[in-house]
Nucleic acid binder design. Structure first.
Lengths: 227, 227
DNA sequence: TCAATAATTCAACAGTCGTTGAATTGGAGC
DNA sequence: GCTCCAATTCAACGACTGTTGAATTATTGA
């Protein structure tokens, strides 16, 4: 008897594994475990292939992460650019609400992914930090543009450093998306999950009162994001 | 010739390595590399001892982390309790400023440590999450108390959910401490480092305008933290 | 002076990691 | 039908991981 030949598993599969599918798997595992703890073997398992296949499509684990950024961030920056167009004459709080909508739409599909990016900003490797900073610097500039136009139009009180205002608006919004769902039921001792949309609205209303030239003027009604 | 006996290195050292020193080292390494990537060998190297010695003082790597929490968080909670005492009749913004001062004092000595804790909240192991939540839940309750007293005294506008207001105040303050120094020069394209104290003041002033019953009434002058 | 103990290190364990080179296979082009 | 190539896997490398048990020593107590 021939010694029970192992099943022939090598060679091309019926359905080719595309680089995009590997990125999908990597995103899931990165988000779940973090960048360094995530193993290529776990990513491969998630994608249903061999770890070595990853090296057919990517140079390294870090290259997967930057490819992930390349896939996610540019559409966000494009959306922000449209909002920051000075031809947009809507009231500033509405434009800021659109900014939040862009972040919500482009970054909220993958829970954990933003936290991952945030962690790499704080203590990531050199190359990764540089890539992130290039991207997010572009995004921040657009938000800052909206705020500066708001000052020029007399709607935002001057004296407030625009870079701080940018940081406040965006960072707390992302913290709402990332941390509030985790923290609310347990740390804050909340019986029912808070509605994310309510939290986002509450934040913009508070923020707008804080930066408006006339804080007594109410914040205009904020539509739903997807509109 | 006797085969060059290795130097006798075993046995007690002239200066005993205390558990506290191991915690100091662990804090440094955890903060630099994160919880899972930090290796016991790296911690031992930082402490100048053998990795095995860690097991003489602690049960495991995770036990080191919870011990770290046990050392840092309770003093913060005590300070917050004093501020939240209803007998404290100072203006609410001043009390909130004291809250920020407590966080600043008790958590800002070790850059990276807060980020570590934050990361473990989001995706840490079960036991660690529970411990963190117990501690930080206590802290959050005190802050919430100050805000609710502010509402009762007519200084804070009602209708704002206190748990959201708590989350906003504390989270953005911690983001200022953690992220702003990293992000400001690079992502926001700032020529000069922003002054942390200025950023903290700016945040409380914006926040107070956002939550005060009378937003036109100016925020009282905020003293330096250490006073 | 001797035994006990506390504090420390050594050496090794079984496991996982990122990565690589070679082997294998199905399908496309000729 | 043959050849080539793209896609895939296998098996292994060396390095590193958390952890443990035994060995060692300085100090303490009797």
């Amino acid at each position: 008897m021939s010694p029970a030949m192992p099943p022939r598993t090598r060679g091309p599969k019926p359905h080719k594994v595309e680089a995009d599918q590997l990125l999908d798997a990597a995103q899931v595992v990165f988000a779940r475990e973090g960048l360094r703890p995530a193993s290529l073997r776990a990513i491969a398992r998630e994608a249903g292939c061999d770890p070595a296949l990853i090296y057919y499509h990517f140079d390294s684990k870090e290259a997967m992460f930057t490819a992930l950024l390349d896939r996610r961030v540019p559409p966000l920056v494009e959306a922000l650019k449209r909002i920051a167009d000075p031809a947009d004459l809507r009231a500033t709080p509405l434009r800021l609400w659109s900014v939040m909508g862009a972040f919500h739409r482009h970054l909220s599909h993958d829970p954990g992914f933003r936290s991952l990016v945030r962690g790499e900003i704080v203590r990531g490797a050199e190359g990764i930090q540089a890539r992130i900073q290039t991207y997010l610097g572009g995004a921040a500039q657009q938000v800052r543009g909206v705020l500066e136009q708001g000052i020029a139009r007399g709607e935002v009180r001057p004296g407030l450093p625009p870079f701080l205002a940018t940081f406040f608006l965006v960072r707390l919004h992302l913290e709402i998306l990332d941390l509030l769902p985790v923290v609310a039921p347990q740390i804050l001792g909340l019986e029912e999950r808070p509605d994310l949309a309510t939290a986002e609205r509450t934040w913009l209303q508070l923020y707008w009162r804080g930066i408006a030239t006339d804080p007594a003027a109410p914040c205009p009604p904020l539509p739903a994001f997807d509109a």
